[in-house]
């Protein structure tokens, strides 16, 4: 299986503060890679380099290369809009639009003109909401404001919104941090299901979750990539002492 994403010698700066140090990493196609590490170690920053979301931060600067499907996404001629369409993202904090539940999910489909007609749009919206394990809770109030949902429901709505545009890669920044165990389990099942057709990068603070859903795990600390290995090896017999200390809860 080839690599979907290939990162070489990436350094990342917020102004004069370096947040990521010399990261080199490959994410295989149609696998789940989990990113773990203590708070502030740069997991969100790393994820956001993969869809160039850091472009919105004026002081952000990146060196090194990030290739997706063999193309450098930081090359000057890159179509950032097309890139983001292909690399979807679920943010750490849920961020629904000030629109109805239905329109939140329909938005990406509409702007990318993916639907044939209204019925097709309805179908796509329903499928995305079902995939995000939210359908039963909202099917009777699709036209009410998304702000009327609970925090966990809003987060699943944002997942549905990201899935609706059928990206190739899905970046998930702690998608289950605000969810109860049942919803979390549904999301985990979804992640496992999704990897049949998508490549997934998921940040999580929950070790069991990383162990359950991912094929490979990457461990970050203080902006450095300490270790990447198949998840099973990572959690049973890590190469690095730091990894073992973190996983066994000796710090962090």
């Amino acid at each position: 299986m080839g690599s979907k994403i290939r990162i070489k010698n990436m350094d990342f700066f917020y102004g004069s503060n370096q947040a990521l140090f010399d990261i080199s990493l490959e994410i295989p196609d149609r696998q789940v890679m989990a990113f773990i590490g203590p708070s502030g170690c740069g997991k969100s920053t790393f994820l956001r380099t993969l869809n160039r979301m850091n472009d919105t931060i004026p002081i952000a600067r990146l060196t090194g290369t990030v290739e997706i499907d063999g193309k450098d996404i930081y090359a000057p001629k890159t179509d950032v809009v097309a890139l983001r369409r292909k690399v979807g993202m679920v943010f750490q904090k849920s961020n629904p639009f000030p629109k109805s539940i239905y329109e939140n999910v329909a938005y990406g489909i509409r702007i990318n003109r993916m639907h044939k007609d209204r019925a097709d749009l309805d179908q796509r919206v329903e499928k995305a909401i079902r995939d995000a394990a939210l359908w039963d809770e909202v099917k009777d109030r699709l036209n009410t404001s998304a702000f009327g949902l609970s925090g966990g429901q809003q987060q699943r709505l944002c997942i549905a919104r990201a899935l609706a545009v059928q990206p190739e890669v899905v970046l998930m920044d702690e998608p289950a941090s605000a969810l109860d165990p049942i919803a979390t389990q549904k999301i985990e099942e979804l992640v496992v299901e999704l990897k049949k057709s998508y490549t997934i990068a998921i940040v999580t603070h929950n070790m069991q979750q990383a162990a359950r859903v991912s094929d490979r795990t990457a461990f970050f600390m203080l902006g450095k990539l300490i270790e990447v290995n198949p998840t099973e090896k990572m959690f049973t017999n890590p190469d690095e002492k730091l990894t073992e200390d973190y996983i066994t809860g000796r710090f962090g």
Partner: peptide
Amino acid sequence: VPKSMREGALALGAPQWRVTWNI
């Protein structure tokens, strides 16, 4: 308007002008 809301739209592949106009 929170930055996160704009980012949500940008992440779906919305061009800047659509983010301004629709969101």
